[in-house]
Design a protein around this nucleic acid. Structure first.
Lengths: 148, 148
DNA sequence: CATGATGTTGACGTGAGCGTTAATCTTAGG
DNA sequence: CCTAAGATTAACGCTCACGTCAACATCATG
């Protein structure tokens, strides 16, 4: 689709990981180059790059381990499958099935993300409250007598 | 202050970690029992329990490693120090110094938390958008002809 | 005061997520 | 066509955050 334009080193540099990391993700079935050079070197498309970025996002933002991420990625792959089957004209029941599954997985992930969002928000508000107290304290301590 | 009421196993159970974890945190200087039994067993106060909880929060919510958490914890300890010095009546300059440092550390942490919050929010919105698309697709696919 | 549950230190083990090295092969540019 | 830069597989290494086990000490409860 996008053309297999990037070599592994370029992908690594663009995403901010090492080539080892990308190969490791491939070992685990998280990503795979959408093509190969005549000699057998990996060639990545723009979507592949996005794939690696997504893995990193799920890792850093949500703190998921790679096996969990794998499940999510596989789910998204199945959805891609669905799209293709849709265009190819697969039977109705099958479509329904896969689509409902995709929705379920998406909902679960959304739930977790929402939960995390809420908890971080609460945490931030704690910190904000502290910040206010500190600054109030600073003003009290440092004010040259009182302006009255 | 609160009394040293808990044994390590009780703390572990309440927080949802193992005793090994608590001892490991102690090794790293993240927590320490506020007392000991005559025979040398660790005794924890309610605040100590809160301390362990906080470490877990920083780990799970923010994804910090234990060294980073150590820095944060140490900063908070210094603030506690300040409070005591304040009550004891330390000199003005010193107060200012420590307080400003505490504020700086709090601000840095707040910044990171805000950043993470924003990024997760963006991520959630992506997921929400996807959810809408999926459901729209489901409706299209499953509707029995069209109600018109 | 006995005794089972719990705690202590110390040491080695473990899984995840890569880092690093080695030996060989490809690729891209002049 | 030559060559430096980059890629390939395979294997071992390493750090972090604990798990696990041993050998012993202590605690709390009847």
């Amino acid at each position: 689709m996008t053309g297999e334009t990037y070599r592994i080193g370029q992908v690594a540099e663009r995403v901010g990981v090492t080539t080892r990391t990308i190969r490791y993700y491939e070992e685990l079935g998280l990503v795979s180059p959408s093509g190969h050079s005549p000699g057998g070197a990996r060639r990545y498309s723009e979507e592949d790059v996005a794939g690696v970025r997504r893995i990193r996002e799920l890792q850093e933002l949500m703190g998921f381990d790679l096996q969990t991420i794998r499940r999510i990625v596989l789910a998204e792959r199945r959805l891609q499958e669905l799209r293709e089957q849709y265009r190819a004209g697969v039977d109705e029941a099958r479509r329904q099935e896969i689509l409902r599954e995709a929705i379920a997985i998406n909902d679960e992930l959304r739930g977790e993300v929402r939960d995390k969002l809420d908890r971080i928000q609460a945490f931030l508000e704690e910190l904000n409250a502290k910040a206010v107290r500190y600054r109030r304290f600073l003003r009290v301590t440092s004010s040259p007598r009182s302006t009255a």
